[in-house]
C-alpha cells in the first residue's frame, strides 16, 4: 500500500476526494435528489447497529437497496417528517481518506467523518456531534463516479442514540 505516487494516481485521488467532499456537502445541505443521483442501480446502503454484524440476521440502523433509498428520501423530502421540521443544520468534516483502486477500474475508499448537528425547536436548541467512518465502493459510469455500496459505521451505533433524521 505504500507505493510511490504517480501523476495518474494523484489525479485519481483528487477525483475521489472531490466525490466524497461533494457527497458530504449534499448531505449537509439536504440535497436529496442530487445525493440520490450519486447512487448506481446496484446500490446497497448499510448503517450497521452492532459492529461486525450480519445485516440478514441482526438488526441494522439502515439497510436499503436502490428502491429502499428512494423510499427513504421520499419521506425525507416531506415537510411532514416531523423529526426534521425544521431541518437540522449540519456541518461535517470528511477526512483520513484512503483510496484502493480495484482491478475492475472501480475504487474502494475508507474515510472518517465528524458531523455537528444543530436543532432548534420552539423554546429549545440542541447541538449534537456524530462521528464514525464510511466505506464506499465506487465505480465509473461513463464520465462519472457512482456509489455501488456505502457502509457507515457510527462510533455509538449500538449505543443509545437520538433520532437520526439527516443523511449520513
Amino acid at each position: 500500500m505504500n507505493k510511490v505516487a504517480t501523476a495518474e494516481s494523484m489525479d485519481l485521488r483528487s477525483e475521489i476526494e472531490n466525490f466524497l467532499y461533494r457527497e458530504a456537502r449534499l448531505m449537509d445541505q439536504h440535497k436529496f435528489e442530487e445525493w440520490e443521483a450519486l447512487w448506481s442501480d446496484r446500490a446497497v446502503y448499510w448503517v450497521p447497529c452492532a459492529h461486525d454484524s450480519d445485516p440478514m440476521t441482526e438488526v441494522s440502523l439502515i439497510y436499503a437497496n436502490r428502491a429502499g433509498i428512494s423510499l427513504r428520501l421520499g419521506r425525507m423530502k416531506s415537510k411532514a417528517m416531523y423529526a426534521q421540521d425544521p431541518r437540522s443544520i449540519c456541518s461535517r468534516v470528511v477526512g483520513n481518506i484512503e483510496i484502493y483502486p480495484r482491478d475492475d477500474g472501480g475504487v474502494d475508499t475508507y474515510s472518517t467523518f465528524n458531523i455537528t448537528e444543530f436543532k432548534r425547536r420552539a423554546n429549545i436548541t440542541r447541538q449534537l456531534t456524530w462521528s464514525g467512518h464510511s466505506e464506499h465502493q465506487l465505480s465509473r459510469h461513463g464520465d462519472e463516479w457512482l456509489m455501488d455500496y456505502k457502509k457507515v459505521t457510527l462510533i455509538n451505533s449500538d449505543g443509545e442514540i437520538p433520532a437520526l433524521g439527516f443523511l449520513v
Partner: peptide, 14 residues
C-alpha cells in the same frame, strides 16, 4: 423503528 426508522424518530420528536 430504531433511530433512523420511518416511524420512531417522529414519535421521539413529539
Amino acid at each position: 423503528f430504531g433511530p433512523a426508522g420511518f416511524l420512531a424518530p417522529d414519535d421521539m420528536e413529539m
